[in-house]
Computed example of a mutant assay.
Amino acid sequence: MSEAPHGAPIKTPGQLIAAIIASFAIPIVVIVLLAHYVDSSTRTGAGTDGLSDAEVAKRIAPLAQVDIRDANAPRTYKSGEEVYKAVCSACHASGAAGAPKFTNTADWAPRISQGFDTLWHTALTGKGAMPPRGGTSPDDYSDYEIGLAVAYMANNAGAHFEDPPKPAPGAPAAAAAGAAASGAPAAAAGAADQGAAQAAAAVAALASVPQSAAPGAGGAQQSADASQAGKALYQQVCQACHAAGVLNAPKFGDKAAWATRLKDPIDQIYNYALHGKGAMPPKGGSNASDADVKAAVDYMLNAAK
C-alpha cells in the first residue's frame, strides 16, 4: 500500500517570512480589538465612577476655603430657603431639641400667634436650646437673612408673613430689625420696639468682638487661614451638636457651658476633640486634619470668652 507524499506548506523563503509576520500581527490585532471593546463598553458596577474627574476633584478638595470678597461690592443676600437649609434645618427639619418641626402646623401655631417681630427677635437673640442666630454670626448671615428664614419657616406652617424690608445699600444689617419693628401693629408696638432694640444691641456686641484677631486658647494669635479653617469646620461638623447643645455638648457662645472646659489645659481640650469624649466621636465623626480640628476648638473657645 502506497501513501501520497506529504508536501510542506511553506516552500519558499517569501512564504516563511509572511508566516512569521502573520504569527505576530494576528495576535496583536486581536488584543487591540479586545482592549477597544472592553474600554468602550458601558460599566455599571459599583464604584465605576470612582475615578471620574468630578469624583476625584471632590475627594481632593480642601476642607476649608478662603472666600475673598470685595468690601465695596453690593451684598448679595441669600433667600430664606437657603438660610433654612444651611442653618435652621439642623434642628427644625427633625424637631430636635424641642425646635418646632418644619411644616408642622401644630408646632408652629403658638409661635405664629406671637407675630413675626417676636419670632424674628427670638431667632436673633436665642431661646431655650436655640443659640442666637442659630449659632452663626452677623458676618455669616445678616439680620435680614435671618428674618427671611423665619418668614420662610412660618409661612410653610400656615402663616402669611411678609418678608422683612430689605436693607438699603450701605445700611447696617441691624437697621432691618428696627424698620420692621416700627411697622408693627399699635397693640404690640412697645414690645416689638423693645425687642428690636435688644436684638440690635446683641448684634452690635457680637460685631464688636475682634474675631479675626482674637487670641487662641494657647495664648498665640490665630492666623487668618487657621481662623477661617476652624470656622469652616465648625459650620460643617461641630455646629450639628454645639449650636443647640445636643447630647450635652457645650453650646456655641455660652460662656457658662464652656467655663468648666476652659479650666482644662488646652492640650487636653484638643485631645478630647481629636480622640472623642462621651457622646462626641473623634474629630466629630469627620476626617479633618488635626490642625483643622484644633482650629475649630480655638474658634469655639474664642466665642465663649
Rank of each mutant, 00 (worst) to 15 (best):
V297A: 12
D267A: 15
A64L: 08
G98Y: 05
D143V: 00
D163R: 07
K58G: 08
M1Q: 13
A96N: 09
Y77F: 07
P110L: 11
I146R: 05
W120L: 13
G158A: 12
T118D: 06
I266W: 14
P282W: 07
A54I: 01
S94D: 03
T12M: 07
A191K: 10
L233R: 08
E162P: 04
G126W: 12
V209I: 08
I146K: 03
A149H: 03
A192S: 01
A157Q: 03
Y152W: 06
R43N: 05
C88H: 01
V66E: 11
K101V: 02
P27G: 00
L51C: 10
A129W: 10
G95A: 02
N72S: 15
A173L: 13
Q65H: 03
A249F: 14
T76I: 08
N271A: 11
Q198F: 10
V56T: 08
P164C: 09
H160G: 15
A259I: 03
G95L: 05
A64V: 03
A273D: 02
Q268R: 15
G128M: 04
G278K: 09
I68E: 14
Q228R: 01
G115F: 01
G158N: 13
D254K: 06
T44Y: 15
G7E: 13
T48E: 04
A106I: 01
P9H: 14
H121T: 00
A224Y: 15
I146L: 12
A257L: 06
F24W: 14
G230A: 11
